[in-house]
């Protein structure tokens, strides 16, 4: 049996589920942000920073950030295991993906908690 050690959840079924749950989170956040920006055309700094100071918004944003990280990993993993056949090149690609994803998570948390 071939087992994968680089997938997100070590299980295809688990990855399948996480990909869909994270997709719904990203979908809801996207709809919320587009709606918010459309309804507040003259948005100013006070209102914008107040939105992100709100604990509920921080939880929502962090949830989205973590969903983004999982979604990215599963998506990039699927693409790289399908199309990058040489192990070395795939390893480098997946390592770079992992590093960038980690940077996004830390950077994102810093932005969210720096408000």
């Amino acid at each position: 049996m071939v087992t994968s050690i680089t997938s997100f959840g070590r299980s295809g079924l688990y990855d399948w589920m996480i990909q869909r749950v994270s997709a719904v989170v990203l979908l809801v956040y996207t709809v919320f942000m587009i709606g918010y920006l459309l309804m507040n055309p003259g948005l100013d700094y006070e209102q914008w920073s107040a939105l992100f100071e709100n604990t509920a918004m921080r939880i929502f944003s962090l949830l989205t950030l973590l969903s983004f990280a999982a979604h990215i990993w599963i998506g990039m993993w699927s693409v790289s295991t399908d199309y990058i056949k040489p192990t070395g090149a795939r390893f480098v690609f997946q390592s770079a993906t992992g590093l960038l994803t980690f940077i996004y998570v830390v950077w994102g948390i810093q932005i969210l908690w720096g408000v």
Partner: peptide, 21 residues
């Protein structure tokens, strides 16, 4: 995936200060 750099940069800048916004 790579474009998210610009998104995070803009978000960070806009939340940093009045001047950044």
């Amino acid at each position: 995936y790579f474009g998210a750099v610009f998104m995070l940069y803009a978000l960070g800048l806009s939340l940093e200060s009045q001047q950044g916004f």
